[in-house]
Amino acid sequence: MKSAVSREASTPLDTTDSLTPTLRRKRKKGVAGYAFVSGYFVLLILFGVLPAAYAIVLAFTASGGHFTGLTNFIKTGEDFRFLPAFENVGKYLLIWLGSLVVIVLGLALMLHSIARRVSAAFRFIFYLPGALAGAASVLVWLFMLDPTVSPWRLFLGVFGFKNLGQTILPGHLPLIFAIIAFWAGAGGWIVVTYGALNNIPNELIEAAQLDGAGAIQTALRIKLPLIKKWIVFMLILAFAAGTQLFVEPQLVGEASLGLISPTWSPNELAYYFAFQDNNFNYAAAISVDLLVIGLLCAAVLVFRTKLFEVE
């Protein structure tokens, strides 16, 4: 494909051609444009559009392949594991997003008010655990939550936890997963928020201070409203990613002696339908549910916040 294009494009510009030079150039550029995006376009179709389309087809058909309408969605929605899974993730999201708003913004504001070099050191330290995202972060926190070895054992003891089984009781999981997400992910958001705060013109802050605003008033009335769109950005991305929870309940479940349901999160439920029940249609239906949530989040960000410049 590429060779054909470069052959076409490498023919010398011939002004005696019946086409005017500008028209010719435009057409050649058009062909070149396709060539430049072709590789990515193929990947987009094969690993973005096609799987989504296939999942939609499966979600609306039965295992025999005939159209069944919304049956799969209704059947999975009525499944006794469906609501608890979404409830679990909902509780987790509430804590995780709440901590993002309160703690991440608080820390970013504090960092923004101290000397730049000191704050750079803090930002790096806060960002560092991001290297342990995923399975590694869960393992680290299994150690942290195990009262027999944890460096926080005194703290865990205050709550009366004597062994790992007591710390990771099912009711504690939303909080635990929020702590893990915060530990591995908050640093990145602190850096982003700090960057946004840095973009506020100094004159604005100085003017507020001249008018007698203290540090807290400046933060709440000037800084936060000015970075509102980044806060929305952070919350939507964290929400979209949070609905996809999989590795955390999977690994903690592994360490829990079967106390924790293997269908704790919606993605785990979809996985369960696909691999335990061999019911790909049900699995596809839940995947489509989750895809729609992700799509809605993306739509809000793209159309409502104008964060992404496309031109």
């Binding site: 973005g48 979209a240 996809q244 596809a284 995947s287 992700g294 793209v302």
Partner: peptide, 18 residues
């Protein structure tokens, strides 16, 4: 832009089915 914002995990099971 859309697929970039959507969490990659959302496509994992569809990719498996494919």
């Amino acid at each position: 832009l859309f697929v970039m914002i959507m969490p990659a995990t959302a496509l994992v099971l569809p990719l498996f089915l494919e």
